[in-house]
Amino acid sequence: MSIQIFILGALSEGNYYPYDIKKRIGKHLDQTDAKITEGTIYYNFEVLLKKGLIEKVETIQTENRPDKTTYGITEKGRHSLEESIYKVFQKFTNVQSLYAALVHLDKVDNQKIAYLIEDIIEKMNKRLEYIDSHTPQEIDLQEDLKDALFLMRDHAYHSIQSDVLWLQKLLHHVQRRVLKS
């Protein structure tokens, strides 16, 4: 879904060839481990085309070269982009799942995004409280297993805590966008 959000977001700004989109995605994903192949891009263009979210704008034919097709977004695609961005926040799984949506915050109601982020932070804080309140008691386990459980708990707690701090920064950023509009 995030690739489709990125494609729709780029096409909402103008018409592009799939290869142009691949280069744009590459620029945004350079800091991550994600790798996008041309096959993935072309497959997602086909999916979006079949759904009526994008349309072919122009096909350029030249000798000894494959056809180059330019695509644009449809009104249905603009609506789908907006709904997809909201859905990413509503179904939050991890910080990385938000990356494609972050690039296109200018295409949605940032007040609504702020509420969704506040909801995510609240849920994450409840997870932290749960971990705090369920510290493993002294139970009869092998020492290695007990150490492993404490290390896993510690990692989970600090990972969630780190995500909450990042989400608070994101919330502050989105709230500033709301004030500017």
Rank of each mutant, 00 (worst) to 15 (best):
S2D: 07
I3K: 09
I3E: 05
I3D: 09
I7W: 09
I7N: 07
L8E: 13
L8Q: 02
A10F: 09
Y16I: 04
Y16S: 13
Y16P: 08
Y17M: 14
D20E: 01
K22W: 05
K23D: 01
I25N: 00
I25P: 00
G26R: 00
K27E: 14
K27G: 08
L29H: 06
L29P: 01
L29N: 00
L29G: 01
D30Q: 02
Q31T: 01
Q31L: 08
T32R: 03
T32S: 07
A34V: 05
K35W: 04
G39M: 12
I41S: 06
I41Q: 08
Y43L: 14
Y43F: 13
F45S: 05
E46Q: 15
L49C: 10
G52T: 11
L53N: 10
L53K: 10
E55L: 10
T59I: 13
I60V: 14
E63G: 12
N64L: 13
K68F: 12
K68S: 13
T69R: 02
T70L: 12
Y71A: 11
I73M: 13
E75W: 02
E75R: 02
G77E: 04
H79V: 05
H79Y: 05
S80V: 09
L81S: 07
E82Y: 00
E82D: 04
S84T: 04
S84L: 05
I85R: 03
I85F: 10
Y86D: 06
V88A: 15
K91I: 06
F92G: 03
T93W: 01
N94V: 00
V95F: 15
V95K: 02
Y99I: 08
A101V: 04
A101N: 01
V103K: 12
H104V: 01
L105V: 06
K107W: 01
V108Y: 03
D109H: 06
K112Q: 10
A114W: 01
Y115F: 10
L116W: 01
L116F: 11
I120V: 01
I120E: 02
I120G: 00
I121S: 13
K123E: 11
M124E: 15
K126A: 14
L128N: 07
E129L: 13
E129S: 15
E129P: 09
E129M: 11
I131A: 12
I131V: 15
I131D: 05
D132S: 15
D140G: 06
Q142T: 04
E143Y: 00
E143V: 09
E143H: 06
D147K: 12
A148M: 09
L149C: 14
L149N: 15
F150V: 07
M152A: 12
D154R: 02
H155N: 11
H155C: 05
A156D: 10
Y157E: 12
I160S: 10
I160P: 11
Q161C: 08
S162E: 10
S162Y: 08
S162T: 05
L167A: 08
L167F: 07
Q168M: 08
L170F: 03
L171Y: 15
V174F: 13
V174D: 12
Q175Y: 03
R176D: 08
R177C: 07
V178I: 11
